[in-house]
C-alpha cells in the first residue's frame, strides 16, 4: 500500500476544458507524467495499490476533471438527428436519475444502478470507465451496444471516434495522451423498443461482472432494423459481437436458428478462466443471454 505517498502528489484544478487541454498538451510535450482524475473510483484504488514511490522521486501531476462544466452536461443534439450527448464526467447517479436518459436511453439508466453500490455511483463516470480500459467495464458495454460516438478533445480540437474504432487491445485505445474524453453521442432508442441489461456477478452490488450483456433493438415487419449488442468480461476488450449482429440483422426473426446464434456468439467472444469465473460458465452465460434477448424479440431460439 502506498496511501502515504498520496501526500506527495500535486493537483491542478482547471475550470474549463480549454484550460485542461492546454495544461495536458504542455505536460505531454515536455514528457512530464500526468494523471487525470474524474470520480477517482478507479484512480484512488490504483494509486493505493501502486508500489511505493522512490524517495525523492517526483510523482506525476494529477489533473482534476471534476470541475469542467463541459464534461457534466446531458443534452439532446437538435441539429444532429436528436442524438443525445452525455458528458464523460456525468456520474452514474445523475445518469440513472436523468429524465432524458430514462426516456431515450433506458438501458443506460438501468445499467447505472448496477455499478458498484450507491457510493460508487455517486462518483464514478463513463469517461473513467472507458479510459481505465477494463474489459469488465459495464458502462462501456452499454455504450458499445448503442454504437456510441466517443468525443475526444485536445488543443488540436475535437474529434469523433465510432465506438467500434476506439479500443485497439487490452487497455489500449486510439486516445492520444493529450486527449480528454469529453462526451459520448448516442442514438435514442425508439420509444417502447426492446432492450436488455443483464449483469451476471457473485452478488448484485459491489461485484465485477463475470459476464455483462447490453443490447438494444428496434423491430419492423418481423425483422430487427436496429440491433446493437455488447458483452463485458468476454474478450480482452469490450466484445461488440459483429457476427451476432450481422446474423440478427440479416435474418427474419422467425427464421433465426438457435445453433447459428450460438456459433456467432462463440465466434465473437474469447472468454477465459480467472478468479471470477470460468471460460465454460462465461460461454454458457453468453449463449443464454443472447438467446434470451432474441426470444424476447420473437425468435424461436
Amino acid at each position: 500500500m502506498s496511501v502515504a505517498d498520496l501526500a506527495r502528489y500535486e493537483l491542478a484544478v482547471p475550470r474549463a476544458l480549454s484550460e485542461a487541454c492546454a495544461l495536458l498538451a504542455a505536460r505531454v510535450a515536455s514528457g512530464e507524467p500526468t494523471l487525470l482524475c474524474a470520480g477517482g473510483t478507479d484512480l484512488l484504488v490504483e494509486l493505493g495499490m501502486a508500489p511505493p514511490l522512490a524517495a525523492g522521486a517526483r510523482p506525476p501531476l494529477c489533473v482534476d476533471l471534476s470541475r469542467l462544466p463541459e464534461l457534466r452536461a446531458v443534452e439532446r443534439l437538435e441539429r444532429d438527428g436528436a442524438r443525445i450527448r452525455i458528458g464523460a464526467g456525468v456520474s452514474y447517479l445523475t445518469l440513472g436519475r436523468h429524465e432524458l436518459v430514462q426516456g431515450a436511453l433506458p438501458l443506460l439508466a438501468r445499467m447505472s444502478h448496477d455499478i458498484g453500490g450507491p457510493t460508487i455511483q455517486a462518483r464514478g463516470t463513463l469517461g473513467g470507465n472507458l479510459a481505465t480500459g477494463s474489459p469488465a467495464a459495464d458502462g462501456v458495454a452499454a455504450l458499445a451496444a448503442h454504437d456510441a460516438t466517443v468525443v475526444l478533445t485536445s488543443v488540436r480540437g475535437e474529434r469523433r471516434v465510432p465506438f467500434a474504432g476506439f479500443q485497439t487491445g487490452y487497455k489500449r485505445s486510439v486516445r492520444q495522451a493529450d486527449e480528454i474524453i469529453t462526451a459520448f453521442e448516442l442514438e435514442p432508442l425508439a420509444p417502447g423498443s426492446p432492450w436488455c441489461w443483464r449483469k451476471v456477478g457473485a452478488r448484485q452490488a459491489q461485484a465485477i461482472s463475470k459476464v455483462a450483456f447490453a443490447a438494444v433493438a428496434e423491430l419492423e415487419g418481423g425483422r430487427a432494423r436496429r440491433f446493437g449488442a455488447a458483452m463485458a468480461s468476454m474478450a480482452p476488450v469490450t466484445a461488440t459481437l459483429p457476427a451476432t449482429r450481422a446474423l440478427v440483422l440479416g435474418t427474419p426473426l422467425a427464421d433465426l436458428d438457435g445453433e447459428a446464434l450460438d456459433r456467432a456468439v462463440a465466434a465473437d467472444t474469447s472468454p477465459i478462466d480467472d478468479i471470477r469465473s470460468t471460460r465454460a460458465y462465461r460461454a454458457h452465460c453468453a449463449r443464454a443471454l443472447a438467446r434470451g434477448f432474441l426470444r424476447e424479440l420473437g425468435a424461436a431460439v
Partner: peptide
C-alpha cells in the same frame, strides 16, 4: 455525504 450524496471517503481526494 458529499453535497448530500453518499460517497466513500477513502476514494475522495481532499483537493476535490
Amino acid at each position: 455525504l458529499l453535497d448530500g450524496e453518499p460517497v466513500n471517503a477513502c476514494l475522495v481526494p481532499i483537493g476535490q
